[in-house]
Amino acid sequence: MTLADDSPRTVTAPAVPVPPDPTPPPVPRRRGPSLSRNRWGYAYVAPFFVVFGAFSLFPFLFTAWVSLHDARLSDIGGGTFVGLDNYAALLTNDFFWNALRNTITIGVLSTVPQLCLALGLAHLLHYKLRGRTFFRTLMLVPYATSIAAATLVFATLFGRDYGIINTALEAVGLDRIDWESGTLSSQVAIAVIVTWRWTGYNALIYLAAMQSIPGELYEAAEMDGASKWRQFLHVTIPSLRPTILFTVVVSTIGAVQLFGEPLLFGGNGATTGGARNQYQTLGLLMYQQGWTNFNIGQAATTAWAMFLIILAVVGSAALVGRYRARREGARR
């Protein structure tokens, strides 16, 4: 991992197509003579690492240790050492695979529409608008609403017998849906909650990136006679690609850790994620193992499995990105 050495025009800088530039622009890095080799660096990161080490790193490593034990919640430090048995058991555990499947489908169902809608919304917000601050602020209201409050309301809206979504479906001549008890329907409902909460936030990130797209690109496209739609497809989207990749990664991390929405969606505090575990995510499974079944060793194992999954997803995204980068580089 080479984070520290990379120049960081992350997120928003337009990737393609940049006007041909024979010499790469100077990258301002590792040049400052007096600020480099600066021992103050340690002092500046020290406050962070003191708190971080005490309150984040220790629990993290402790969890790894617990995952190697057959430990109960009430006696967390006193379980018997079982090596990798918990991990082996996890691989043959139907509940784990079910939760993994659910996490993936809910993740796809929420991330894809969320980011597409955010793009569209950002496009709209990019116009010259009356009350632009008002609209932008409005888009952030869902993010300011707590997961608990949002889920509580949506669970009511998605109610089988008295929810207004079903009332509306019936009014237009469709059948009522038992949202909570169906597999796909419950996952869609949860994805709707996630989408609702994060679309506006992502839209503003995209909007910021759009504003940094150089006007010349659009002018050039217009001269070529490209329609607004084609400009969106061939100028806006490619320019946003790094931002899009970034939001995909961040949403993926969020999706794998999804926990509050499926916990609260059932409305009766059950950690099973529905009667058939139809919307139990990995985060919820871990919670059930640890706090409902008191099997903290199993829960720690699931937590570490989640970590490894995220690592794999982000790692492969990184590889794709690198491959692309190389290809683009070769093209130039």
Binding site: A155, T156, D161, Y162, E180, G266, G267, N268, G269, A275
Partner: peptide, 16 residues
């Protein structure tokens, strides 16, 4: 109905 769910609560009032 699942007991203690919102739907269950509402069902009391509706003579379900």
């Amino acid at each position: 109905l699942a007991q203690f769910s919102d739907e269950w609560n509402a069902a009391f009032a509706n003579g379900a």
